[in-house]
Simulated assay, not measured.
Amino acid sequence: MTDIRRIQDAEVAGKRVLVRVDFNVPMKDGAVTDDTRLKAALPTIEHLKQAGARTVLLAHFGRPKGQRVDEMSLEPVAQPLADLLGDPVDFVDDITGADALEAVSDMSDGDVLLIQNTRFEAGEEKNDPAFAEALAKLGDVYVNDAFSAAHRAHGSTEGVAKHLPAYAGLSMQREIDHLVQALEAPERPVVALVGGAKVSTKIELLENLVKKVDVLFVGGGMANTLLHAKGVNVGASLCEKDLADTARAILAAAETAGCQLILPNDALVATEFKPHPETRLTSVNDVAENEMILDCGPATITALAVAMDGAKTVIWNGPLGAFETPPFDTATVTAAKHVADLAREGEIVAVAGGGDTVAALNQAGVADDFTFISTAGGAFLEWMEGKALPGVEALR
Rank of each mutant, 00 (worst) to 15 (best):
D29H: 15
D29K: 12
A31H: 13
V32L: 03
V32A: 05
T33W: 09
D35M: 08
T36R: 15
T36V: 10
T36A: 06
R37L: 01
L38S: 01
L38E: 00
K39I: 04
K39C: 04
A40G: 02
A41G: 02
P43A: 02
P43H: 03
T44V: 03
I45H: 04
I45W: 11
I45E: 00
E46I: 08
E46L: 13
E46G: 05
H47L: 15
H47R: 15
K49V: 02
K49G: 08
Q50I: 00
Q50P: 08
Q50T: 08
Q50L: 12
A51V: 04
G52F: 08
G52E: 02
A53C: 03
R54D: 02
T55H: 14
V56Y: 07
V56R: 09
L57W: 00
L57F: 03
L58F: 14
A59W: 04
A59M: 02
H60T: 09
H60E: 01
H60F: 12
F61C: 01
G62L: 00
R63M: 06
P64D: 09
K65M: 06
K65S: 10
K65R: 13
K65F: 06
K65A: 09
G66R: 11
G66H: 11
Q67G: 11
Q67N: 14
R68G: 04
R68S: 07
V69S: 02
V69K: 09
M72L: 15
S73I: 07
S73E: 02
L74E: 00
L74S: 07
E75I: 11
E75N: 08
E75Q: 10
P76T: 07
V77A: 06
V77M: 03
L81V: 09
D83T: 14
D83A: 10
L84W: 13
L84C: 09
L85W: 13
L85V: 00
L85N: 07
L85S: 03
G86C: 05
G86E: 02
G86I: 00
D87W: 14
D87S: 15
D87G: 13
D87N: 14
P88R: 11
V89S: 08
V89C: 14
D90V: 01
D90N: 11
D90S: 15
D90W: 01
F91L: 14
V92I: 10
D93K: 13
D93G: 11
D93C: 14
D93E: 12
T96W: 01
T96E: 02
T96C: 12
A98V: 13
L101S: 14
L101Y: 00
E102T: 15
E102R: 15
A103C: 01
A103K: 10
D106Y: 00
D106A: 15
D109G: 08
D109N: 13
D109S: 14
D109T: 04
G110E: 10
D111S: 06
V112A: 06
V112N: 10
V112I: 00
L114T: 06
Q116W: 11
N117K: 15
T118Y: 03
T118P: 05
R119C: 04
R119D: 00
E121G: 09
E121V: 10
G123K: 13
G123A: 07
E125M: 12
